[in-house]
């Protein structure tokens, strides 16, 4: 069997103020897989993502395609792992969209023509090519979110790491994002609260709570396990509920009001 592209071994992290964020995380992701990382607020999802490219590091080991994440490997690791933050205002820091999308490739010291090509391709993928010359603060939230993704697509990463990609997106752009992510052939790790989104695009899912991986496995198996999910601040998504049909308004009325004849 091929070696997993992401291997985390007993990763632990405590914030400077003493808050424990990760309490020994073990996680493996196979090449080409799409992993959904779910868990309640404050479970440590974002902290875990920041370990994948060596932004945070305390105890334990992280390996990306067999390469240990240590200081001397950081530049090649950051070229392999494309991390998109939840807040697009943090992700987009350059004066124009072009400069922002070009920031990664230029830092990777690609030749000028290759940089331009990468920027155009990435912006085309997220359907934002016309905004190339604009300034980020004049864009709408959805536009900023899509350009945030383009800023790492331009680096052609092997692993795409997204933190809450669908938060605050309208249904149309959420749909667009789903189509885009389905088409990208790279390994993806996505932290989200949007469980319907996980059902649509993920191959497997990991539940994180209080800094530990509680369960990892098949999407449908885990997301229909009511007891597991409710114990960790989650709920079975609507489309997987066995009693889904009872939630149709007509059905509720019927069960609440038994036929009149029977009462008489």
């Amino acid at each position: 069997m091929e070696r997993p592209i992401v291997e985390l071994n007993n990763v632990r992290f405590t914030y400077p103020d003493g808050t424990p964020a990760l309490a020994g995380v073990d996680l493996c992701v196979a090449r080409g897989q799409t992993l959904g990382l779910i868990g309640p607020n404050g479970a440590g999802k974002s902290t875990l993502l920041l370990h994948l490219n060596g932004i945070l590091k305390q105890h334990g080991s992280v390996r990306i395609s067999g390469m240990e994440v240590v200081d001397r490997n950081l530049s090649s690791i950051r070229g392999k792992v494309g991390l998109v933050f939840q807040d697009p205002d943090a992700q987009l820091f350059m004066p124009t969209v072009f400069d922002d999308v070009a920031f990664g490739p230029v830092n990777m010291q690609l030749p000028k023509v290759a940089v331009q090509e990468a920027v155009v391709n990435a912006l085309e993928l997220v359907d934002m090519l016309p905004a190339m010359k604009r300034s980020s603060h004049h864009l709408s939230f959805g536009e900023k979110k899509r350009i945030s993704i383009a800023t790492v697509l331009s680096m052609n990463p092997e692993i795409l790491v997204l933190d809450e990609p669908t938060s605050n997106l309208d249904p149309k752009h959420r749909r667009g994002l789903i189509e885009l992510l389905k088409e990208l052939p790279v390994t993806k790790i996505i932290a989200t609260h949007d469980l319907e989104f996980v059902i649509e695009i993920c191959d497997c899912v990991a539940v994180l709570d209080r800094g530990k991986i509680i369960a990892q496995g098949d999407v449908v198996n885990i997301l229909s396990d009511k007891r597991l999910l409710e114990a960790h601040g989650l709920e079975v998504p609507h489309s997987l509920r066995k009693d889904a049909h009872r939630h149709i308004p007509g059905a509720i009325e019927k069960s609440l009001h038994p036929p009149l004849e029977r009462i008489q």
Binding site: L50, N53, I55, S75, R78, G79, V81, G82, L83, F85, D87, A90, Q91, F93, F103, G104, N107, M108, T151, V152, M155
Partner: peptide
């Protein structure tokens, strides 16, 4: 956060 985002992109 912006600094972290910059680090992430090399």
């Amino acid at each position: 956060k912006v600094y972290l985002a910059m680090c992430c992109r090399g």
